[in-house]
Structures are given as C-alpha cells and as structure tokens.
C-alpha cells in the first residue's frame, strides 16, 4: 500500500501578470518507508507541491491522499529552519509533541541524537545555521512521523555540514523508516539519498522521469557510483536536466 498518492491535475496562482500554472498533471505514488527524491529546476513547483501535500494549501484540482488513519503523522522541514526565535532548542522540538510529562525528555533525547545535547537551552539566535537545521530536523522527527516532507533542507550550507546532516537524516530514516519525500534541485544530492528520483519539468511542473535507484548504500554525492550514474543520466536526458543547480555549476 502506498503511503502517499499524488494526482494533481492543476495548480495555478493568480499574480499581477495574470494566472501562473505551477503544476500540471503531477501524478505519482510513494510506498511506505521509501525515500523518494523530487528533483526539479527552480520554478518547477516543488515547494508548491509540498505545501499541497502538507495540506497548507487546498486550492488545487486533483486529489492527494496520505496513508494511515486520518492521513498519519506528518513531519516537515522547510527551506529555512523556521524555528520560533523565542523558544529554546528544547521547546522548539517540544512544539511537535503533545504536552505530556515525558515530552521534554523525548525532545532532549532527540536533540542529543543530533549532537545538540549541549544546546538544549540555547535560543535559535545563539545557534549556527547548521545547528538550527538540526533542531528543525529534530522537530520534524520527534513525533515519529509516518510521512516526512523535506524542502531543500540543506541548501546554503557548506558542503561538509550538508553532508553531515544528510548522514544524520539517513541514520534516522533507517532506524525509524518513515516515508520521505525529499525535494532538491541538486542531482548529486538526489542520487546519493534516494531510493527513487522523480524528475519534475520546468514550470508548469510535471513528472517527466521516474527513476528507481538501487545503488548500494552508503553513497556519497561525490562518490564514483553517483558520478557514473549522473554522467549516464546527463547523456541520456540532456534536455531533462537543464536548469538544475548543480549542472549549471558544472557547466560553468
């Protein structure tokens, strides 16, 4: 049974320049426990799609079904950490938990798993960018979500920090096995993380390629296996991958 069924026939925005169609005929299903990456150039409607799945925006044509009772528990990591500046790291994580006697301890355990045990009482402004993202990751994981949506969560971090966070994510995923939809515009990141990569076209976004991945783990975004696959993909689908961030960089 799939944990997520997406069938969005159309999602449009009204803007000053008239109506902009962000998504057109996006359809895919993700099975429970799968780590699916959604890859697309900027403007392909990735973030829009995530907010539809999260239920933040209900103005669209089509149908989205999240598995489990009443849609199951949802975790989400946004492009920016979106921590409450007035709450400590612990309280930010507690926000995802129903107030109960054990919830603070649970949040502390989660932060300790993220190597933030020394920063429980720190406010976000006292944390580095990488630390803030780890708190955001802890907040998303702490309530054992059935479905986790991540929207380019590690962008604008330096490469070692981003890789460290990817490793943390994979460790948490292999331990708890939530279904994950990971949005990125970085082909290497997608290939190093996913069980599967869904390629979105430039706006209006459509799924143009659904690529299952069986590369052995652990993988590295700079490793030989990922690199070989990336080359093969670029040769087979040159049009498809135009506009992706990492590919523009390598072309430059």
């Amino acid at each position: 049974m799939s944990a997520l069924d997406v069938a969005v026939t159309r999602k449009a925005y009204r803007s000053e320049r008239g109506e902009i169609v962000a998504l057109a005929d996006v359809a895919f299903a993700v099975r429970a426990g799968q780590l699916a990456c959604l890859l697309g150039p900027s403007g392909s409607g990735k973030t829009t799609l995530l907010s539809l799945i999260a239920g933040l925006d209900r103005a669209y044509d089509g149908k989205i079904r999240r598995g489990g009772d009443a849609g199951g528990r949802l975790g989400m990591v946004f492009q920016t950490p979106r921590l409450m500046p007035w709450l400590t790291a612990r309280d930010n994580v507690c926000l995802a938990l129903d107030p109960a006697p054990g919830s603070a301890a649970r949040a502390e355990k989660m932060l300790a798993d993220m190597q933030l045990g020394a920063y429980l009482d720190a406010f976000p402004c006292q944390l580095s960018g990488g630390q803030q993202r780890r708190v955001a990751l802890a907040r998303a994981f702490v309530n054992d979500p059935d479905l986790l949506l991540l929207d380019e969560p590690f962008q604008s971090l330096d490469a070692p920090t981003a890789q460290h966070l990817r490793d943390l994510l994979l460790a948490l995923w292999s331990r708890r096995r939530p279904t994950i939809l990971f949005v990125t515009h970085d082909l290497r990141e997608a290939l190093s993380l996913g069980d599967r990569v869904l390629f979105l076209s430039a706006g209006p976004g459509r799924v143009v390629l659904d690529l299952p991945l069986d590369l052995p783990r652990p993988r590295s975004p700079d490793g030989a296996a990922v690199e070989a696959l990336r080359k093969r993909l670029l040769e087979s689908y040159p049009d498809l991958l135009r506009g992706l961030a990492s590919e523009q960089e390598s072309a430059a």
């Binding site: 999260a54 933040l56 949802l74 975790g75 979106r82 907040r139």
Partner: peptide
C-alpha cells in the same frame, strides 16, 4: 506567515 505554517503542519491546538 511562515511560522504560522509551522503551527499548521504541527497541528497545534488553538491555544498553543
């Protein structure tokens, strides 16, 4: 509004 969206995703009660 971004922070209010976080509250939506976390399904916070009205009072929280």
């Amino acid at each position: 509004r971004d922070l209010l969206q976080v509250a939506d995703v976390l399904k916070l009660s009205r009072s929280r």
